[in-house]
Amino acid sequence: MKTILWATLTANGNYAQSGPENPPKKESLDDFATHAKAAGNFIIGRRTFEGMRGSGGPGPGPFADIDIVVVSNNASEIPGVTVVRSTQEALSYLQQKGHQTALISGGADIHNSFLGQGLVDEVIFNVAPVLEGKGLNLLIDKANYRYKHVQLLDCKPLGGGVVQLRYAIDR
């Protein structure tokens, strides 16, 4: 199964933290919905899912026919989504459902877990036109600070100052 990690970064390279003072750009949200529809699914952390739900999504609309998989050690059941305990369980579930691609969509912990385990084939970074003083980083190896070379597949403007970078990762 092909795994694609989708994230929004700030112009200074931090993992973008959205909130009332810095809402996500419409162009990034529309792009996420497009990728989720194409994959037919997305994997998300519980806290990020709850944040999305609190802001009016995910729910009916663009995610009505999409398999949403929430990775959580705490939640046992969330109506309308599948809850799993691990990254491997999330991928196994989507494979059993017949998906060819898994979209990893949210939460720095989820992203870092997939990256740290070497489970990502491709990354899509939407770079938002904002500088963030304090942010989180995407990490491939917390202990050894190793490098992982990637191959640029595409680079395009999405509008609103958002630029998308798409890279392949050799696993």
Rank of each mutant, 00 (worst) to 15 (best):
N144R: 08
D141Q: 11
Y145H: 11
Y147A: 04
V130E: 01
I124K: 14
D121Y: 14
G116Y: 03
V123Y: 05
H111D: 08
E122N: 12
A128V: 09
G135V: 00
D121S: 15
V120K: 11
H111G: 01
L139C: 05
Q117M: 12
L136V: 15
V127A: 02
F125A: 06
Y147D: 07
D141R: 12
A143P: 00
E132Y: 08
G135R: 00
L131E: 08
D109P: 00
F114M: 07
R146Y: 01
Y145R: 12
R146H: 02
I124W: 13
H111E: 10
S113I: 10
N112Q: 03
F114L: 08
L136G: 01
I140S: 02
V150Y: 02
V130L: 05
V130I: 10
N126Y: 02
L119D: 09
Y147V: 02
L136F: 13
E122P: 10
N126L: 03
K134D: 07
L131P: 08
N137C: 05
I140Y: 06
I140D: 03
D109M: 13
I140E: 02
N126A: 05
K142V: 02
K142M: 05
L131S: 09
A128D: 11
D141W: 14
K148L: 14
K134C: 00
K134P: 00
N137D: 06
D109G: 07
A143K: 12
V123F: 04
F125N: 05
V120I: 15
L119S: 09
Y147F: 04
L139S: 08
S113D: 15
H111P: 04
I124T: 12
K142P: 00
G118P: 09
